[in-house]
Design a protein around this nucleic acid. Structure first.
Lengths: 110, 110
DNA sequence: GTCTAATACCTAAATCTCTTAGGCAATAAG
DNA sequence: CTTATTGCCTAAGAGATTTAGGTATTAGAC
């Protein structure tokens, strides 16, 4: 597992990216998908995830639908059109940042 | 310029890396070197830099020598042996994190 | 000569994100 | 029937960084 320090500032971009690719997801599903993509290296904590989702919703970047599964509530998040545009920008920005970091660390990434 | 959000958590590793490669550097020199390596994409702020250097010194990871240049003080930082070991670990960790992020973002880095 | 930009160090309050540590409840598996 | 997993959530505290100062020397432009 990575020291969570490094994760700071990247959570929002990760959320936008997986929602961009999957269309509609609920919180728990996102944690599982990120775990899968990262080969268990990135484990999103709920204390970070839900506030981040709520913030993005409040900003009009995400929209939600609530669905009942049996007696259980499931809340789906998806990108608004604003969100789709932002997702693209944020991912580009993070990719760019990663490249810059690689230069600073003077490492080649296969 | 990158949104400084992304920089969070990486500053310490950057400092250890440049000091590892240059042996002995002073604060201002570090900011210039990082600016150069990042092609002006990463501009370290002094309000982040100096507290970080002082913390690393307090922890025995860095040691200092103060030199007078004319009437001006210049404070050189270099890695202790503990610091050299830590530098290696931290750089590996960050490289690994970058690779994980690339997987999550599903991008290939040339 | 004087004014500005660059060099060079520093601190402190406020901000922002995330961790930690809870709470609540339904369902599956043993 | 008891535990692990699914599934939502909040709030206090920690920690890193930004913002916004402060001080002073030196080099260069006009």
């Amino acid at each position: 597992m990575h020291s969570p320090e490094l994760l700071k500032g990247t959570l929002q971009t990760i959320l936008l990216k997986v929602l961009k690719d999957h269309g509609r997801m609920y919180g728990y599903e996102i944690t599982q998908r990120v775990k899968e993509l990262s080969e268990s290296q990135l484990l999103l904590t709920e204390g970070a995830l839900y506030p981040a989702l709520h913030k993005l919703e409040a900003e009009g970047i995400l929209k939600t639908e609530t669905v009942m599964i049996g007696k259980r509530v499931r809340k789906y998040y998806s990108l608004t059109s604003t969100g789709r545009s932002l997702a693209k920008d944020r991912v580009e920005e993070l990719v760019d940042f990663i490249k810059t970091m690689s230069n600073v660390l003077q490492v080649k990434l296969a």
